[in-house]
Write a protein that binds this DNA or RNA. Structure first.
Lengths: 330, 330
DNA sequence: TTGTAAGCGTTATCAA
DNA sequence: TTGATAACGCTTACAA
């Protein structure tokens, strides 16, 4: 069933049928009704590929994420897709993993499918080496690119960033004000986000005239536990664990328990992201709500404005909210 | 840059270029090399829409999920997409929510985009009322449909199911063998999955000659807590909480703590899915690993076989694994 | 207000 | 082994 069949059955030309379908140009009410009836009777819907060809768009947006199983990224998809749908876009999702090469390959695949824009979730796509980001810059020459919680300065690249520095500063300050004197900053790798968080933590320490100390942990949960236990068993005192995300914080919680340390009395612990984990553990985590939904909304705005050739700031920084729970002193 | 440009620059016809691109028909090595060179020089890639039109496929698969933010569903996407990619398919993901009408509308949207097959995640898409599943049956007349952890008997619909009945039976038996005498089965709504789990739990109770008792909880975490606390405060004894998923189990854990009950000494608790939550809480949850990855792999197989007109069983049931942790007696 | 016809960029058939 | 050419199904000037 195609536009010709409809045109034949309703006794008008295909041009008219097209006008009816797209609500474009002039069509008399009478003809419109006639055509609509035939369309509905056959429950015809226009061929998407042909449309794509004629319009050179199929209204799709590519979403790249390193790991859709990750709580944070899954949240993003969960918020983004319905927003896209509301604007008649479909979301092609590609999970790239953390390897730069496959990230580039996957992005390429999306470009080859002629997506109208790209949304990259998380800072994993941006490298310190500008050469490695070149492919994103290149992509942005073709279509708008939105970075959610990642930063890259380039034309047609729109970045929506949570103010992680400020957030971590608030978390650290909170803990220090509650009496901590020997905090340790726990992080995974040195992403953009981690750097900002370190700055915030460092600043809080300086303001309280307290030495800054940090400890890297590994990716696997079990190894995290070990690293943190070693830390607690060490000679240096430690009365606060300031983690860059909730998962690490949960590991910290567990390590403390195993070590016979009470949270928050002996050691205060903070997370980040305010994910489901923060409420699943006990004591519940003091964390930071980085308003994923807001970020997604802003990203959508950016993309939509860009697609309509409207102006939008290349960099948007917003603030989240400190969530105080049981893992820090009252 | 299109196939004509390439043909012109390499001094051959577009037919030959097409053959080179698709590795189809006969092309002399010499010509192939010549054409490839031009293609690479211009880093040309064929227009996806035109291809879609000519082939009447763009190699895309639609994934429907009610909520991509949900741990379980996010896991599915995380496993599915890379598998699809390996077979050169792109994944259009649509988050439908839990409302039947929008589920149908979203599925329709995917069909209109000419996806080659559909994967539906979770049992939320299947209703007890066959009329409400009609749209899925209809879709399956056009393209293969795979239901992950959902069941619908219809032509061209392939269901991959974890044996939830058996799993819940194992969990309940475990708890009863460890001494529980007044278990309560905690569930959300009566999905297919829940029904199976109830059966398993019920059977275990019968085998141990113990009365079966159940309690429905609400969707929101906070309300869950209340419901379970009321349960614990009630006059009837309760020494085991058997939850249909980890989130409810975490709520159960918390309710026990608030109520001054020790887990597992006073009350044993079990979850389901073996999600990150199971290890985040304390005591860590005894849960059931339903092998999401295996399920996704099987779903992929089904789809690929169906697309190649090979036979594949309409219903595949597999077993997961009991994971014993701290929330049940040793 | 409607219709004709020229693209859009491929693939695939058939002839050479 | 290669090349002309007809689909594929739509949108959109332009003409009527």
């Amino acid at each position: 069933m195609n536009i010709y069949d409809i045109s034949r059955q309703s006794g008008v030309s295909i041009a008219t049928v097209s006008r009816v379908i797209n609500n474009s140009g002039y069509v008399s009410e009478k003809t419109r009704a006639k055509v609509m009836k035939v369309i509905e009777q056959n429950n015809y819907s226009p061929n998407a590929f042909a449309r794509g060809m004629a319009n050179s768009t199929m209204s799709t947006i590519g979403i790249l994420c390193s790991d859709a199983g990750d709580l944070y990224q899954a949240q993003c998809i969960h918020f983004l897709e319905p927003l896209l749908k509301k604007e008649k876009f479909a979301a092609i999702v590609s999970c790239t993993g953390y390897d730069g090469e496959s990230q580039e390959k996957d992005l390429q695949m999306l470009l080859e499918r002629n997506v109208d824009a790209l949304i990259l979730i998380g800072s994993h796509f941006i490298s310190d080496d500008p050469k490695k980001n070149e492919y994103i810059v290149r992509a942005a020459r073709r279509i708008p690119v939105c970075l959610l919680n990642g930063y890259l300065e380039a034309d047609n690249v729109f970045c929506i960033l949570h103010d992680d520095r400020d957030a971590q500063h608030k978390l650290a300050s909170h803990v220090l004000e509650k009496g901590a004197r020997a905090p340790v900053f726990l992080f995974r790798q040195d992403s953009h986000s981690t750097k900002k968080k370190r700055q915030g933590c460092l600043q809080a320490c300086m303001q309280h005239d307290i030495p800054f100390r940090e400890q890297q942990v590994s990716e696997s949960f079990d190894e995290m536990l070990n690293v943190i236990e070693d830390l607690l068993a060490g000679t240096q005192p430690c009365d606060a664990l300031i983690a860059v995300d909730d998962e690490i914080a949960v590991a910290a919680l567990k390590s403390c328990t195993r070590h016979g340390l009470k949270v928050p009395e002996d050691v205060q612990v903070t997370g980040f992201n305010d994910s489901v984990l923060a409420q699943a553990c006990s004591p519940e985590l003091t964390s930071f709500d980085n308003r994923v939904e807001f970020m997604c909304r802003s990203g959508m705005m950016a993309i939509m404005q860009a697609l309509n050739n409207h102006d939008y700031p290349f960099k948007t920084i917003y603030n989240g909210k400190l969530i105080v729970r049981e893992s820090t002193c009252p």
